[in-house]
Each structure stands twice: as structure tokens, then as C-alpha cells.
Design a protein around this nucleic acid. Sequence first.
RNA 1: GUCGCCAUGGUCAAGUGGUCAAGACGUAGCCCUCUCACGGCUGAGUCCGGGGUUCGACUCCCCGUGGCGAUACCA
Length: 552
Amino acid sequence: MNYEKLAELLFANITKTPADYEKEFPKRNLPDGAKVTRLGPSPTGFIHLGNLYGAFVDERLAHQSGGTFFLRIEDTDDKRFVEGAVETIITSLKFFDINFDEGAGMDGDTGSYGPYHQSRRAEIYQCFAKEMIKKGQAYPCFLTEEEIAEIRAKQEANKENPGIYGKWAKSRELTIEQIEENLKSGKPYVIRLKSQGDWACEPDKAKTISVEDAIRGTLTMPENTADVVILKANGIPTYHFAHVIDDHFMRTTHVVRGEEWLPSLPIHVELFNALGFELPIYCHTAQLMKIGEDGNKRKLSKRKDPELSLDYYRNEGYHPAAVREYLLTILNSNFEEWRIANPDAPIDEFEFTAEKMSNSGALFDLNKLNDICKDVLVKIPAGELCEFMKKWAKEFKPEILHLFEGNEAYIEKIFDLGRTGDKPRKDLIYAKQMFEFISYFFDDYFKIEDEYPQNVSQEDAKAVLSAYLETYNHQDDQSEWFGKIREIATNLGYAAKPKDYKKNPDMYKGHVGDVSTVIRIAVMGRSQSPDIWEIQQILGEERTRQRIAKML
RNA sequence: GUCGCCAUGGUCAAGUGGUCAAGACGUAGCCCUCUCACGGCUGAGUCCGGGGUUCGACUCCCCGUGGCGAUACCA
């Protein structure tokens, strides 16, 4: 077979050579140890926590080492393209402070290793397909869908390995005349790798390949034997081929991708070897999982898990810093310890390593996220929280935006309620919940939500409130104020201290806590809240008196 | 079906042949306390099963089992 002639026949329009591309995309000039990573999403317009998880690994690896992190759009499957998806990807990640150094962008590509859309790289892929044909490493395959289905059926019946390989790869035998004929008659064809793997050997004698994975250590797998498609009938490459070409010419040093790619690693290794490219360092991450309806773990799914969409967290108003913090705790098991030892250090000072990553899939844990949120938000100054919430409201709850008008100082005081001192309150979790927390400070949203305690009669409740209103002095300090409550309690037959009541429950109707609950409900509408006195100081005298009077 | 990855409490996990098997979230109780939150203390709760190897296995090997994934001209 004259491969040279075949290559020209198939790719007459390809004039550039591999050497041209090697020259055009030279090795990057980066400091020693700098890592080059990439995110390669397909533009389906949907991005979830799992994507963020992976992107975070890429971002940390690159930026921690003084390297480069770029965005490559893997749009080789035109069926899946969704308008505006690239913008969604970029803005969603940016919200979580994940930024690209080069690659596809909002207004075109930046960087000199592009184009960064695979759909615009057809010429490059074809050049290398041509090269492989020239070297007898690839061939055109004219098998139809039906023929392939037939082959699969036979293989299944004979319990043989599935796929096109060795004896099944009929198009390998085609003479150049036959190929020319097929071409002339317009038969569609794909380009397949002519695998050098030994498909005919005994299963247990199969040759193996060994690859170092930065997360999983040495991986040993059987070599590839399948003649996989590298170029589809439309001239667009499959993922396998695009990955090898792109990551070589974009000079990616670390390929971070989900473990679902593990089974096709042998294909990639054969491809890298065939082309004479150096293998990148692979980092196969475990997938983020979720408990399914059947109680089993399963991979995050786009369709079934809208609450795992990144948008969900923005909607609820989770603070990006908290989400990052959470992600890091599941990404690197030593992060939590580090955080305890360095409670105030910037998160970027933590040294993230691929080696410390878990190789089994973590279950997403909302409890843990919420807990982390509390710790993160308690350290954010009230002014910033106010800004954060305003931004959130603008996007997701515009009807409350007016509350912020000129009320910034008021809201900041609410956020700071009991937040100072050694044991600061940690009430704030995410924006939606924060609004709930502050809502009763606004008359529009104030409503009585809870009921008086069981052991307080309606008469007693009224008596408490009228006595409270009578003796109320907005200028009282906290202990003066509480002294009065104790007095009201005692006068009505309630214990001044809960302990007294505990000791002699028969002697009292209840204790001072019940009395203050009545006041709490009148002023806040709920039985649970931070310190009443502090809240009243924020509400102001007039509003406080009004609310109590209204309950009488 | 075949192939691959994974397997420590409810969850995240430390652990690399000898440990009373860390820690965090959650959970139960107690303390602090006018409620809640915070904080403190205490408790319950784990090495998937079976074979080996070894003086000794959570740790190493094999076989099961389970979960996940791959088996496409999807990524």
C-alpha cells in the first residue's frame, strides 16, 4: 500500500506539516515546575458543582505554581451546542473566583495557542490524521452503521471483545484502488487508528501499559487494541483525538479530568505514542456523588439534580468564599486541619496537592457546607455582607431591594448583632436565609409567627406586656432592662431564674424565660432570636413601643 | 455480558503490618444561658464478606460482594 498516495488522496487540501505546528505552538516559556492546566467543557450550557470541583483543581494547580490555566471549548459534537453557553461557563466560574488566563473568552480568544474552540481546529486535526495515514498508523473505514451493529451482535454472541479491531477491521485490507472507488461513489467514511495492540492474544496475556496518575499513583491497564475513530465522517475529531492533539499543542502539562475517562486512557496512550508526543501528567479525579432516590450513591446528573447546578447556589445566595472553602475540604483532606491551625489565613495560602486528593467519590454534604458558611460569614465585615446581599437581591429577589435604600447602616447593625467578642454568634449562612434572619426588622415583613408559651395564659401575657410597656425606658442599659423583666416575672408568679424554677417547679407558673418569650414574640414575632435588648436598640424606641402596644 | 476504578461510623475522612482506629459535619445528653445561636464537656456510632501471607492484619495478595463508570462517528 502506498500510504503517501492514500494520504494525498484523502487530504489533498492539507498542506501544512506537523513541523509547522510544532513551530507555531512552541513549548511554553514558564518557570520550572509551572503547571499548565485547562478546562475543557462542552458547551451544553449547564454547569454544576462537579464542574466547579474540577475547575478548582485546575485553577489551584496552575496558579499555585505560577502556571497557566486556560479554557478550551470542546464543541466537537455540534448536536449539543447551546447558545450562550460559553458566557455561562465563564461568568459562573468567575462568580466563584475562578479565572482563566487564556483561551475562549467573552469577546473572542486570548492567547497564542488557539484557536480555543475545537470546532475551529479542523485543519490541525486533519493534518495529523493525514500524517498518521502517511505512516500507516490510520486508515479510512467505510463500515456502515448497520455493518457495525452486525459486528457487535456477532461479538456479543461469541463473547468476544466489542469494537472494531484486527479481524473485524475489514477496511484495513482495502486496496488503494478500492478506496479510490469508494471515494468516487461518495461513500461516507471515518478515519480510524490502526491499533498496534495485540488483539488476538489470550486475555490474561494481554500486554499492559503503566501510567503515573498524580492522584491515583501507578495505573496499570491492558493496552488498547481497538481501531477507534479519530476523525468522524464530517471531518471533526472524536474526543480522543482532539484531546491528544490539543493538549500537546496547547502544551498542557496536567490533564485534570473525571475518572470516567479512565477506561479510555489506553487509547490516549497509544495515540500519544503513535504521534510521538510526550504524555501529560494525568489527574483523574473522583466524581462528586449524590444519594439517589434508591438510596445508592450515584454520579451527579445534569437532568436529575438541578439543586447541584451552580445556579442553585447563586440563587440561594451562598457566598462564593464559603463554597470554595467547602470544595477544598472535600478536595484535600488535610485542608480542614490546616484551616483549624490557620483560622485567618487567606485560602490561597493553603498548598493544594493532587496527591492528597481522594480517589473515591465524595457525597455532597449540605450540612457541612452550611456549617462552613457560618464560619466564613462570621469573619466577613457587616459592610461587605450588606453589599453581597444587595447584589444577590438585585439578581434574585428584586422586591426586597428597596429595603436597602438608605438603610445600609441599619442592616449592618443587624448583621453585627452579637457578632463581636470571643463567642460571636454565627447566625448567617446564605443570602436567602440572611433575609429571613433580618426580615422582622422591617415592618413590611414583620409578622407574628410563633405562639406564647403553653404555661403563660393570655391574661398573663397581656399583664407582662402592659407592665413592660409601662416601665420601658429606651435609655436603660442591658442589666437595668433585664432587672425590670425579672421584676415583672416575679410579680406575676414566675421564677426570676430558670434554676429556681427547676428546683421547685410547683412553686411557679414558669420562669423569666417564659416572660421574655412573650416580649420576644411581641417585638420580633418569633420565640427565638438574638438578645432582645440589643434588637430593641437597633429597632429604636418608637418601633419597639408600637409593636408591644399592638399586642395589647 | 466484558473491562476499569473504588470500598474505614449517617457524611467527609486520617491511617500505610503492632494505634485504646485521629479529627470535622451531623446526632444524643449535659454545662453556659431570658429563647435561639455561639462556645465547652460527655456519649452513641466504623475498618463490606471469605480465604490466604505473617508471630501479628484496617493496612499486603486472591476470590466474592457492593457502588460507580466505560463499553458510540457523546464528551
